[in-house]
């Protein structure tokens, strides 16, 4: 259980939007993380900018930790097996579906891409169903 934090959520969202805008207007690229990772591992030598973006993702979080003054909470309940299965599904699914929360969610929805308008409700729904089953169906979750 976590607390509703509308203002930090909105502020973080605006930062993510600015990141997407910078990629779009500065490079003509989509700030879609699964696509960037996928292309980076397929052709590690081509497009150093992808590795720069991924390094930035970690650097940005590190900057926050250093400036926050309070510990950053990361609560992961998943077992190692669940992490592996979840990771595999996220990897396969995002490549097959051509995007994740950033590519389809942020970039696609904001330009009313039909594919994204379909993909986002589908992954929101399937994720919601999984959480419901794990947390509320007796005998399934921990």
């Amino acid at each position: 259980m976590t607390e509703f934090t509308p203002l930090p959520a909105l502020a973080g969202g605006v930062l993510i939007g600015l990141s997407g805008a910078l990629m779009l207007l500065g490079m003509g690229r989509i700030a879609g993380v699964s696509g960037i990772i996928g292309s980076a591992i397929r052709e590690p030598g081509a497009g150093a900018w992808r590795w720069c973006f991924l390094a930035g993702l970690m650097l940005g979080a590190a900057v926050y930790v250093m400036s926050a003054g309070a510990p950053v909470v990361v609560t992961i309940d998943a077992s190692t097996a669940t992490l592996v299965v979840g990771g595999l599904l996220v990897g396969i699914g995002t490549r097959m579906g051509g995007g994740c929360t950033s590519g389809h969610g942020v970039c696609g929805l904001s330009r009313l891409s039909l594919r994204s308008l379909v993909a986002v409700p589908v992954f929101m729904l399937s994720a919601g169903v999984v959480v419901f089953v794990v947390r509320h169906v007796p005998g399934v979750g921990g």
Binding site: V85, G93, G97, C100
Partner: peptide, 20 residues
């Protein structure tokens, strides 16, 4: 697109992490 998004959602719901 639909099948991939559904698979991604399952993994996301299991762990709570998406790629970014």
């Amino acid at each position: 697109l639909v099948f991939g998004a559904a698979l991604f959602g399952i993994g996301w719901g299991l762990v709570g992490y998406c790629p970014g």
